[in-house]
Design a protein around this nucleic acid. Structure first.
Length: 300
DNA sequence: CCCTGTCAAGTCACG
DNA sequence: CGTGACTTGACAGGG
């Protein structure tokens, strides 16, 4: 079990997700931004290693506009050395890596243009992980997509589009239960059809449940990951007290997290803390998990 | 320097 | 059909 947080570290003073407006695009601007983002990513991973936070979600903004037609820069070649160094560092320190393209990626859209843009975006994500030389335990997580008034047909459309994907993309993809459309059960059905692993989102399973206990859902999702996929990834959050239903908590609820540790045993998993205060909650979660037999400790 | 409108991309609820 | 929520930040221009 490794614990981590998404994209940004709030305490080290740099941000690895710098971007700019499309109207400001220039090759120089893009290259300078990617250089800055990669340097900050290296700093962030160093912080994570020092604090034994061994799971990390890389930002999709590392290469701004990477899948947009305006992007003519061959960033994979220009930054080949930096990306390989990044991959070496990740391997040497046994970090687990994920990425999470945002809401615009909809593989099962009815509009072929949306599907095409989504595939381009996925190709960017996988190209980045490939360029770093990471194995297929580094994952790209997406949702099944839209319902369009007919969940069954839309689910089948996801399956069809998934089967058409380039193998280099497909082998990195995992699907996650979302907060209002596709449940864990829906994801498991897609898994049964095409073998894609299911990432379990603890909070979404609360707001959009298909009825399984957390313990059962973790067990079912865990079985969808093969050896080359690595162990189950989990997104963890809880309801913000007093907030609208579905609002992520601002800080970690220690008791709730401890309960999840108990409920998820004995299945090993890596846990992503989707809490607003990022690494602060991850540090607290790691301390709470320190007594758990699954938790990976530093080698010293 | 601070304030604030706007940002590549999607889906869905609502009026 | 148009708008805002989702969730969220931060770029960038204007005062």
């Amino acid at each position: 079990m490794k614990i981590g947080y998404p994209c940004i570290n709030r305490s080290i003073g740099c941000r690895g997700n710098r971007t700019f407006r499309l109207g400001s695009y220039s090759e120089e601007r893009l290259i300078a931004t990617v250089r800055e983002n990669l340097a900050c990513l290296a700093e962030t991973l160093s912080y994570n290693v020092r604090h034994n936070l061994l799971f990390f979600r890389m930002t999709s903004d590392l290469v701004p506009f990477a899948s947009h037609p305006v992007c003519s820069v061959d960033w994979q070649t220009i930054f080949a050395d930096e990306l390989l160094q990044l991959g070496d560092y990740i391997r040497e320190n046994r970090l687990r890596i994920s990425m999470h393209p945002d809401q615009f990626v909809v593989i099962n859209a009815k509009d072929p243009g949306i599907v095409e843009r989504s595939v381009r975006e996925l190709a960017y994500h996988t190209a980045l992980l490939d360029a770093a030389g990471l194995d297929t335990s580094a994952k790209v997580q997406i949702h099944i997509g839209g319902v369009y008034g007919d969940k069954e047909r839309s689910l089948q459309r996801f399956i069809r589009e998934y089967e058409r994907l380039d193998e280099r993309i497909a082998r990195r993809l995992v699907i996650e239960n979302d907060d209002g459309r596709y449940t864990v059960r829906d994801c498991l059905r897609v898994h049964e059809a095409v073998g894609i692993p299911v990432l379990f989102d603890r909070f979404h399973h609360e707001v959009n449940s298909s009825g399984e206990t957390v313990r059962d859902a973790v067990g079912l999702a865990a079985k969808t990951w093969t050896e080359s996929d690595g162990i189950l990834m989990v997104d963890y959050s809880s309801q913000q007290p007093g907030g609208r239903r579905g609002t992520h908590a601002a800080t970690l609820d220690s008791d709730h997290f401890a309960l999840f540790l108990a409920e998820s045993a004995p299945h090993d998993c890596d846990i992503m803390l989707e809490i607003k205060d990022k690494e602060q909650s991850a540090l607290l979660a790691a301390s709470l998990a320190a007594g758990d037999g699954r938790f990976v400790r530093p080698p010293f």
